[in-house]
Write a protein that binds this DNA or RNA. Structure first.
Lengths: 213, 213
DNA sequence: GCCATTACGCTACGACTCGTAGCGAAAGCG
DNA sequence: CGCTTTCGCTACGAGTCGTAGCGTAATGGC
């Protein structure tokens, strides 16, 4: 990851403890203050470091929040629930659990909003957050193929496009349900959503050209 | 809407021209500066009004941006494309068109992020933005029922839940595709998405209890 | 063991934004 | 004409930003 660290640099190394303290303090401040009222001075005080230390490591508030939120997605793992339908429900529920945490709610959407005017920030988000989520979708597909519930890759391009579509639908629906509609993505909702998605995918796969039922 | 205006209040009335100028200036500033760098002083200067005038009418930046963005959704109208499938594509495309405008991209997500810590703001967003979008979904359903493509309301509770689900899926997927994945919701993507959604809904409606194909 | 190099904590700084207060003038109504 | 409210303007204290400068701490190379 850190390709700009050739091997061992001379001089005092950066404190790893400071990094974890800063990121934890950032999440804490996100919960208590939200994104707009979060200041780097406050984060520094919480973490017990100097404000300048934060500026030496991160370009600004946006990048810091991205890294702080990204760590929340490290814990993500998809339990094997035995069937494609159950695994999709698992993916959706994992997203819902993450978005239930206040530090994710306030932080994630804010940096996404900022990324609309900052291409580098968008790329940072994609690398450190989106790709970690996407793993779950790919993981679920592989399992389904192993079980024989899905054909083992017909056209790679087409498959990639389908994965992208699924990902946008799943992540987008959960986010919209949770943050915009303001209602919990509970088990009932997840069940209904999964049913629609799964039937839609099966149907779409079954008709390459024929449309009428 | 303005129930706190009994009939005609004494004193000098608020300038309607000022309101439109302020909202237009807000959108202009959103495009040029984005949400985080937008200041009310800057908006006042653009609109040719005093900063205090803005503070007399809006509680703060968040509410101002909500109203400014909400006006973008006034133009929304759903053309009759002849079939349920085509109408759904129409709804999705309408969302995509709105989210293509930079003032919507940077403004909308930012206020949604802020609303996670401000219940009143969330309600304001729901009233002035979300409900205007939802109209399109309801409109499409009514048309489909008129055409006989959908049954005319079985259980009202169940119908409402389905509309909510459709709305979260449609709006969420378009938003995620556009803002997070950073790829355009063009006609190809919309076609694929609509196909999955429509097949999923048909399938879900067709099986109240039976599951096997 | 000394030295070059880098990170750290601390203080201080100018620039900017915030939200509010006070003023005189303007624009409505009875 | 009075009464009321809005408007533009100026000014203000408080708070934040991002940076610079300094002395000190922690490494690795020689």
């Amino acid at each position: 990851m850190q390709s700009r660290t050739p091997a061992t640099r001379p001089g005092r190394p950066r404190s790893a403890a400071a990094a974890t303290a800063i990121l934890a303090a950032t999440r804490e401040a996100l919960v208590e203050l939200g994104w707009s009222k979060l200041t780097l001075g406050d984060v520094a005080a919480r973490a017990g470091v100097a404000k300048t230390t934060i500026y030496r490591r991160w370009p600004g508030k946006n990048e810091l929040v991205v890294d702080a939120v990204a760590e929340l997605f490290d814990e993500l793992e998809l339990p094997d629930r035995g069937s494609l339908a159950a695994d999709i429900e698992g993916v959706v529920l994992q997203f819902a659990v993450i978005l239930d945490r206040p530090e994710a709610r306030s932080g994630l959407m804010a940096v996404v909003a900022e990324s609309t005017r900052d291409e580098a920030l968008r790329e940072r988000i994609r690398e450190s957050i989106v790709e970690r989520q996407k793993r779950l979708v790919l993981q679920g597909r592989t399992r389904a193929q192993t079980r024989g519930e899905l054909p083992p890759e017909s056209d790679p391009d087409d498959a990639a496009r389908t994965v992208d579509l699924i990902f946008d639908v799943v992540a987008g629906a959960v986010v919209h349900r949770t943050l915009v509609s303001g209602r919990p993505a509970d088990e009932d909702w997840v069940r209904g959503f999964t049913q629609v998605l799964l039937l839609g995918l099966r149907g779409a796969a079954a008709l390459p050209v024929a449309v009428d039922p």
